[in-house]
Each structure stands twice: as C-alpha cells, then as structure tokens.
Design a protein around this nucleic acid. Sequence first.
DNA 1: GAATCTATGTCGTAG
DNA 2: CTACGACGTAGATTC
Lengths: 271, 271
Amino acid sequence: MHATTLHRPTHRETLWALEEAFERGDLITVFGRCTVDYDGRASSTLGPGNRLVILKPDGSTLVHTDEKRTPVNWQPPGCEHHASVRDGRLRIRGTRQTPTETLDVDFEQIHQFSALSVTGGRDLDLQGSEEDLRQHILGDPSLVEPGFTPLETERESTAGPMDIYGKDRDDVPVVVELKRRRVGPSAASQLQRYVEALHRELGDGVEVRGILVAPSVTDRTSALLAEQGLEFVALDPDTGQPPEDEASGDVVSDSEAEDEKETADEDDSDV
Amino acid sequence: MHATTLHRPTHRETLWALEEAFERGDLITVFGRCTVDYDGRASSTLGPGNRLVILKPDGSTLVHTDEKRTPVNWQPPGCEHHASVRDGRLRIRGTRQTPTETLDVDFEQIHQFSALSVTGGRDLDLQGSEEDLRQHILGDPSLVEPGFTPLETERESTAGPMDIYGKDRDDVPVVVELKRRRVGPSAASQLQRYVEALHRELGDGVEVRGILVAPSVTDRTSALLAEQGLEFVALDPDTGQPPEDEASGDVVSDSEAEDEKETADEDDSDV
DNA sequence: GAATCTATGTCGTAG
DNA sequence: CTACGACGTAGATTC
C-alpha cells in the first residue's frame, strides 16, 4: 500500500505523476480548477470550477462537484485514459468505443494530485434484494397464497422471462412478478405483458392469473391492476412476511443503546 | 481555495481534521483500510480493504473501490455526517431519515486525509435529451408525419402525463411518446397505457392513435407495437432527423486532426 | 455484441 | 412529503 500526494504541482509534474500512476494501476484523484467537455450518447460542457476528478485503473472516470451523489461528468469502466500537456495546460482525456464517447478534462490549475493503491476486499454482501424475496417465496409458496405451487423461475415467454411461473390450487397457471419495493404503473404493465404472452401461448380459452408481489403499491397502480384483472400480494423482501401496518409503532430494543454506553469512556471522542 | 492533506494521520488527528472540515463545508476524502456496514432500504456488509471515502458538504457519502463507476456503498445527499473515535478507531457514520438509513465506515488505518474547498461552476449544459427531441418536433411537427398538429405537451390522463398530444390530418387524436434512445418493451407498454386512458376518456368508439418516437426499436418491441396497433417513427434526439442508416459509413472531417497537429510542438507531451 | 431487467438506483418535478 | 418518469442511467445476465 502506498499513497503519493503532490500539493499544488505544475501541470507538467502532474503529467509525470499520472504516467507513473497509470503504470502502477493506481486509483488517482486530481483536485483542481477545470472545464469538462463530453461528447457521446449525448454531449455536454461544464464551465470552469474546482472539482475532484477520480481515475480508476479499470478506466472509470468520475468528475465530482461538492453536491450530489452522481458525478457531474463521468466515463464508465473500460475507457482509456490519456493525459497530455498542451500550451502548458494539463488535459486528461477518457475515450471509449461502443458507443464512441470522449470526456475531456482541461485544467487551469491543479491544487492536489494523489495516487493511491487500492486493492482487495471488493465483494459486498447485500441483503433485501428481489432475489431474497424469491427465495422466501420458493421456501414457502403459501406466502403468495395457500395452494400455490411454483413450477419454474425465469420461465421464458415472448415477452421475456417471468420471475416465477406456477399453478394455483386449481391448476390454473399463475405468473408472479416480484418487486423489492413499492410498485408503480410500470410493474403492472410488465406483469400484464407476461400474462398476455402466456395467454397467446396457452390459447385464448385458458385462464391465466397474474400476481404482483411487493411490499406495497401506489393507488393508481392498484386501480390499474384491478382493471386488468391482476392481483396484488404484500410481502416484505427482507422478512418474506407481510409488511407491518404503518399504524403499528416501532418496537426498538434497548440493547444498542447499552452497547454505546459500554464502549464510551474518556478516551473516546465525537464530532 | 484551499486543500489540506494529512499523510498517515492518527485516527484522532483525522477526527480533529474532520471536525474542522465539516465546519468549513469542505469536500472531504479519506483513503484508508476500512470495513463498511449499511442498513436501510436494503442492508450490506463489506469486509476490510483499502477504499476512497468521499464526504460532500451536502451530506452525500461515497465509498469507492478501484473498480466501477458506482460506489460500492453510499449515502445520498441530505444525510448527516458524524465522526467518532472508539477504542482508538475512527468511525464515520452517515444517517438519514425517510427512509431511515445508516452507513458506518470503520477505519483500521488511515493512509490519507484531504479537505478540499470546492465552489462554483456547477451548471452543466447538456444536449441530446428527450426535451431536445420534443423541441425538434414542436418546431416541425411533420417530422412525426405530414399533417400532424401538436395540441398539448404533458397533457394529463388517468395514466399520467403524455409527452405530446395532438391530432393527425384527419383530426384523429394522437398520443406521441418520446424516447431519446433505442426503446424496449416498457416504452411500448407506457404508450399503450396512455392510449387506453384516452380511449376511456374520449369514449370507446373514438379512434386514438399512439406513436412512439425514438432513434430505433428492438425487434420484440416492434412486434409488441404492431400487436397493439401502435406506430413507430425513427428520429434522432440530437438532430431531430431520421437517424443515419447503419449501413452508411461514418464521414469524419479532418479538421480535428489538423487542430491536433497545429497545437503540437516540442514543449507538449503525451502519456 | 444486442436485449432485457434490477437497483440501497439517483434525480427532477408536479401534486 | 409521495408519485411518476427520465437518465449519457449503471450493472448483471442471457442469448
């Protein structure tokens, strides 16, 4: 692990440092006053200002201002970084193909340069996804409704793959569409497409049910589902259980507060 | 403008520096070996590794590894930053309400701390958006089809607002849905929802046309549109013209190459 | 590569 | 606040 930092380097010093950092595969940050030009799927220009530019060894490029989670300009992974000095000014260019896109960062002044070696520990363990919800249901299909039997996941149709395909207690085909959060109209339409595709596949005379499973649903979407003869089942992706009624108050255990107290002593400090 | 950097600071030194930086409203970067725990809409844990942590004065928090454009963990704007030292270890916590979410970054080792004052120049000028496409069409409605007359944009319906509402040469109502890029099935469904809503509003006997305008369309979506009696018009959001046939080769002007040559001299350098 | 869908999507805007 | 849709969405998966 190493971290090199240059304070107020010249444009040319930064170019040298960039060359070495590219070579080492470092994660690079450049803080300075710059303009940004992007051209590709769309195009944009950004006037002069102080920004934090991040260059990752996988080709990702991020230009961050002091606001927002999303970079003001960027380049996705796989782009090629290229730095140059023209008329004494540093330019960092990121280019990619398919689609052809170019991002130019032109520096007026460089306040800080850093090259950081970032390695290891990249795998995230995430819970509460749509996949979790599916596992809950496959483990206990009656969560959808008593007598429901899943037959297939990702079953193909002309409208694309459906989340869960199965039959109800009366052997009526059922399409289940899962969403990890409150659903809007697009989810109802998506389910509708699958139901229609199955209708065509199995014959117009065959009944096909469509069930949308999500923690909750908006009013308009609820109406849309009713119109289309689709059903809704409320399930939480974390627990696989029907979500708490919003009227019920939160029950908070006091164990966490005790932990805080235990670890606090005069050597500890807060900001 | 200022930029303070600490090289291999202690956890406690970093805490002090954080306090001052929060106070000043700086953009903060902390590079170090850390673990990350997130709990909120979903929940996740991330084992030890070297990462770049960015704290913005608007409350945004980003944890970046050496890969991907998207941070491995984050907190959106509006969250509150809080730093503390427990048992000699720095913890940075970001919390927000609605929804309740907590992000904890626990440091084993801090390789570098920086506080940067980032101000001004935040306005981006972006071209080639859906709004551009709309302007092209309103300026020359015949781009959709000869005789088309736009009557309203963002016209409300029970299915939500439609991009352009108008009439064709025979006074038949037309819903136009705009997309800035190649469209998939969801766009067809969206248009279908609007057409159905208009049908109900104007009476089932009234003919309503739906036209999807985008640079191109996938095959399955094309079939979906045909089934539903919807139409497609190919237009490029940049030019407002029918997109080039993919068979036609790119015509590249050589002016850029000349520019490069002009500005290149022995003082200039590339990486 | 193209197509399709999920996402702790994020972001803007209207109600 | 919520709802709804756009986004240079990014990212994963499948074909």
